[in-house]
Design a protein around this nucleic acid. Structure first.
Length: 263
DNA sequence: ATGGTCGAATGTCGA
């Protein structure tokens, strides 16, 4: 089974590119983030034509997460239990979608950005990660043998090697100790970064800002992760970051991250 | 060569 995650930065503007990528990548399941559309706007047929079933949640032009699968898509769940919302209305932000595909419980996650260290969105981000940790730890308590994949745009660079220049991020989100601690708490709950062993750094990233020639200058961040439960991590035979997909006109600012699992 | 932001919805904001 080949599983991937990709922040596509608008599925409507990227549908052709995603479809072409699916056709040449031999991916069974892909989790998408930042689809930037409502459910009724999602170009589902484009992917159905290629044999993929689609689950999506999007409430507005912001956020939006999806899972595309050609090996079945069951028990679709919008949001994880205990997921904090921004404001009072839970349907303001679409940031988490779960589905079982080929026996793997896949969660497509778009962790809040945080904006700045002083912004209320930063506290929201930390609360969101803490809630995810509690819930995801519970899944493993219930069933230590569960194959769970927590994948997506985490908006955190865990190690200093995960950004091209730490000095640039001295007072920024994504690298602050509380964010990194919140991420590590999820690792400590039993979920492992299954990609890093196959894509060692330094200089290996998943995201490059559109501005300031960041991509050709190789100035990026590794903020998209596939975390696997013990049962899932034990099945990983390889992983890659598809840097080619960041090239050219019409690319997302994130590259797809792909993991191969033994049956 | 990968290349001086991009996308969705406006009249700007979020990333």
């Amino acid at each position: 089974m080949r599983l991937a995650t990709w922040n596509v930065n608008s599925i409507r503007s990227r549908a052709d590119r995603v479809a072409a990528w699916l056709q040449r990548s031999d991916v069974d399941v892909v989790a998408l983030q930042e689809t930037k559309c409502r459910d009724d706007q999602f170009p589902e047929e484009r992917f159905a034509d290629l044999g993929y079933q689609v689950a999506h949640v999007g409430y507005s032009q912001w956020n939006g997460v999806a899972i595309l699968s050609r090996i079945g898509i069951d028990d679709v769940e919008i949001g994880f239990p205990g997921q904090p919302c921004w404001g009072e209305d839970p349907s303001t932000e679409a940031r988490a979608l779960g589905a079982t595909c080929g026996g793997v419980r896949v969660w497509s996650l778009y962790v809040p950005n945080g904006r700045t260290l002083a912004d209320p969105h930063y506290q929201y981000k930390l609360e969101w990660l803490a809630a995810l940790r509690t819930t995801a730890a519970g899944w493993l308590t219930e069933d230590p043998t569960a194959a769970v994949a927590l994948v997506g745009d985490w908006n955190i660079a865990l190690e200093n090697d995960d950004v091209w220049d730490m000095a640039v991020f001295a007072h920024s989100t994504h690298v602050s100790p509380p964010e990194r601690a919140a991420f590590r708490a999820i690792l400590e709950a039993g979920y492992a970064d299954v990609v890093r062993p196959h894509t060692p750094g330094p200089g290996v990233y998943t995201y490059w800002d559109y501005t300031q020639l960041r991509f050709p200058r190789r100035e990026g961040m590794r903020i998209d992760f596939v975390l696997g439960s013990p049962a899932l991590a034990g099945r990983v035979t390889g992983a890659l970051i598809d840097r080619e997909e960041r090239k050219g006109k019409g690319a997302s600012d994130h590259a797809p991250v792909i993991v191969d699992l033994a049956d």
